[in-house]
Amino acid sequence: MSKLGQDLITITQRPDTVFVEGQGAWLTDEGGKRHLDLIQGWAVNSLGHSPSVITQALLAQSLRLLNPSPAYYNRPLLDLAQRLVAVSCFDRVFLASSGAEANEGAVKLARRWGSRMRGGAHEIVSFEQSFHGRTLAMMSASGKPGWGDIYPPMPGGFSKARLNDIASVERALTPASVAVMIELVQGEAGVVVADPGFVRELRALTRERGVLLIADEVQTGVGRCGTAFAYEQYNVEPDLMTLAKGLGGGVPLAALLCKEELNCFEPGDQGGTFCGNPLMAAVGLAVVNEVCRPDFLAEVQARAEQLSQGLQAIAREHGLVGERGLGLLRALVLPVDVAHDVVAAAQALEPVGLLLNAPRPHLIRLMPALNISAAEMDEGLALLRQALRNVLR
């Protein structure tokens, strides 16, 4: 039995591979083997591994200022907030370090608003199969089966509806409801895309009932879906939005954005030792400036179409169920529960391995770098075909 990782607290099962270097779409392990990475830290590395735009931002800022404390302004904090406001429909920004932290901030801000404007309304409606983070409150907000049984008692104030079922949302809403929190694409559930008609009905319903709409764009935001933010493709404006993952391009950075009328935290209500530190904010600014250019997003859309068409062809060749997703967040649906076998077979390919993710036993999830080349995408599809042949034959 391998002793690799014996000094770490066990949180997951990892293959016996130690990665030492990454460039663009590729990772190299200690043995020198290269792997085409279509996971990219679970949609974190928006510009791939070790992009120069990030390393330069880190180096330049690290030589100037790391963290003056959140009690003071710093220039990257101000510049990133201004840039996020400029490219979105929101007016105010709070920077944090993780998606769970941003989502907790959104719930806290919604409840603060509810205490002031809705007579103490505090309940959050979220969705079955959703994923909002691993803090206790966000596990309670999530709809992942079984999570309510791991760390009882769980925080209250969260109810569940079904995605793409507006009647279930209507049933879940009560006079105590203050917000509905939605992932426009449920990534951990297997890349389940919210129906545009449902989202429009949801926005109309929340306005009618006087409750807020929170868009959890931790995985879908910052170019992942082919636009700066996924909500743009639904022709709605949420009241609050959370970002993380791709915002930092590989470093721990998250954001909570809100409309001006929701800017109701009192000093001391929200904060954090590392929130808005200039080192991470400088990276976020570099990433947003790169990703949110129209020409960059046009390339994301082109690669998304290439990936979608390639997965559809693979599904036809192997008699699979099909593919789904939005932009460069996609899933291949298998007819049997062999996704984990396909992931292992893909990494074991020689001389080049392929890194995939299996969020469900019958699903393969793909989250490549947003700047992956057309040739690298074709190579990834070819390696996926080979792995599927090895497992399904």
Rank of each mutant, 00 (worst) to 15 (best):
N164A: 00
L58I: 13
E232K: 13
A25N: 06
L392I: 07
H362L: 00
L311Q: 10
R200M: 07
V343I: 03
G156E: 15
L4I: 12
E379N: 08
A331P: 12
D91P: 02
S69D: 13
T242W: 06
S168K: 01
Q56V: 03
L320E: 05
C275H: 15
V343L: 04
T206K: 01
G380H: 04
A96N: 13
H362S: 15
R330N: 10
C258M: 15
E188S: 11
A96G: 15
A331M: 12
S62R: 15
G31C: 00
T242Q: 12
N357P: 00
C225S: 14
L184C: 11
P145V: 06
V180S: 02
A244V: 09
D239R: 11
R224P: 09
L65D: 14
R134P: 00
G276D: 10
G248P: 07
R171D: 14
H132Q: 09
T227S: 15
E261G: 11
A230G: 03
C258T: 09
S308L: 07
L213R: 02
L202R: 09
G210L: 05
W113T: 03
F90P: 04
L63E: 13
R75T: 12
G22V: 04
N357L: 13
L388P: 12
I124G: 07
A137M: 08
L247P: 06
Q61I: 06
H35I: 11
G187K: 08
L240W: 05
L243Q: 10
L329N: 01
L354M: 06
V125Y: 06
R118L: 14
L213V: 06
A346H: 03
V93I: 10
A302E: 11
T206I: 04
S52H: 11
R389A: 12
A189G: 15
L240D: 06
V185R: 02
V18A: 01
G353T: 09
V85C: 13
R360K: 13
N289I: 03
G119M: 02
P278W: 09
G31M: 01
L363A: 05
N103L: 10
V288T: 13
G353I: 08
G22M: 09
N67F: 02
T135Y: 02
R64W: 00
K259I: 01
R224L: 08
A345F: 03
Q219N: 13
P278E: 08
L388Y: 11
M377R: 01
P294R: 08
E104A: 11
V53R: 14
A344D: 12
L36K: 01
A106G: 06
P238E: 10
D165A: 01
V333W: 05
A230M: 10
E101F: 02
